[in-house]
Design a protein around this nucleic acid. Sequence first.
DNA 1: GTAGGGTTAG
Length: 627
Amino acid sequence: MMSSSSLSSSLHCFPPPSLTFQNLKNNDRLIHNFNTPLELKQLHARLIKTNTPLSILPLTKVAFVCALSPSFSYAHQIFSHILEIPQTSIWNSCLIRFAEGDCPSNALLLFYQMRLFDVLPDTFTCSFVLKACLKLSDVVNGKIIHGLFQKLGFGSNLFLQNMILNLYGLCGEMGDAMLLFEKMPQRDAVSWNIVIAQLVKRGDIDGAYGFFLRMPNKNVRSWTSMISGFVQCGKPKEAIDLFMKLEDEAVRPNEVTVVSVLAACADLGDLDLGRSVHEYSTKSGFERNVHVCNTLIDMYVKCGCLENARRVFYEMEERTVVSWSAMIAGLAMHGQAEEALCLFSEMIKLGVKPNGVTFIGLLHACSHMGLIDEGRRFFASMTADYGVIPQIEHYGCVVDLFSRAGLLEEAREFILSMPMKPNGVVWGALLGGCKVHKNIDLAEEAIKHLSELDPLNDGYYVVISNIYAEAERWEDAARVRKLMKDRGVKKTSGWSSITVNGVVHEFVAGDQTHPQAEDICKIWDKLLVKMKGRGYAPKTSVVLLDVEEKEKEKFLYSHSEKLAVVFGLMTTPEGTPIRIMKNLRVCEDCHAALKIISGIVSREIILRDRNRFHCFRDGQCSCRDFW
DNA sequence: GTAGGGTTAG
């Protein structure tokens, strides 16, 4: 091989003695040895002197080197000497390079050069320029290209119409997009899929579904767009229903479909479906796909199977920052802070660059386990060592970290020092800490901000009214409840669910509507005797009503998570874990009760609440009572 | 040589 220094020295002894056509052809590097128009001109001169045909020049590179300079005309001349046909294709290959590169506007510049020199655009030219417009969200130039290709006679080219359709949609010109779609003489699956995806992006899930239903020949992308659309719009149940309908079609789910439906399983905690989609993925060879594995990790994490999530993670052939972040966040959610921190060190050792999401997982890990100093260090180091600028979510995590640990004043100072306006999540984190650590004054300060920032969120009113009730300030509690009523804010009622043999059973507090309600009651009574024998004392202070003790106990015993657990004990095989989901945070009394129950029945009880997982085993909880 | 769907947080 010729080193660059020997190459340049051979250029200095000009003309090289053996620069013949044959030698040039054999010496590919020499022919490529130009990076500026000037160097090209020198090479050109040599070719003429040695009587070598210009056609051996790498034409695409010639175009690229001259594309955006006054030398355009020079390259243009070279091509005219070589080619009898139009030189469009050479410039096209240049265009796509620009369009796909870091500076797509260069494609536009080149395109206007081409127009200036009367190089005739073909459909590929237009599509590459449109690609650049798409990357730049440049609908103005897009419209110019649209007009141009219509003039050039490509107006009915489906490919180009689809690109324009996508561009209009992406730039928010939905009116133009729909007009174009309606006027299109023919449409293919791509046209329909573009409209569906655009409507999904705008949050118009019903509109998207309307198009989906009208669409004649749906392909796997149509189904996948719709399924992922439902997931993105917070309708995982609809996503799963649609996935089930896919079974009757002659369309096979692919990796992307699997990712979308697994995300829905994660949201719903649907472990059964998640497992069977995993099996399908294994059979189909999808486990080589890093997206699929990342979503499998998340699915298993959110379905309470940390062990399976770990297995997927460790068996992955390659991992991205998303895989690491998903696993770290998962460990945090399950209270395995030490392991999460270890994983982070390992990730850094392997040279994977953490992103903002990685740090959210880490900060969660710290705040769920009260690791205050570690949390502080991570927050400082994310900018200092990794160049990740903290977003409001990170500030929220730190406020949560301080507040849970009882450092309420420090949390407040931290909020006041934030470089951006604190949002509801931030003040809400402080409020949560005030409830645990019984600080009414700070809670009142937090609620003042919250009633402005997030006036329709029922959770905050409930917390402050509970804080008052716990302090037996019944009048204040009542005042908050009235405020809620005046503002039309409804309290979200708590529910817990358990899946048995594929059927989801949902319970709300005091629920007597379940067909087996009577049996549940009987079993609970028996269990209660054993629980009291092991020191369970109903924590009636959790009941925030001004009623008799006995009444309070009755309320406690009918909490939805207790009903769900008892139902699980009745209907699932001995020794198997019981998995419960709750829409709100677990109450203190239920937490104490489930710990004791797990010891009595020797069963693992895995509870996913709004915030995190609690895994009860042998009378203990994985959260170590810090939550 | 060209167009449409995907993952971690919240």
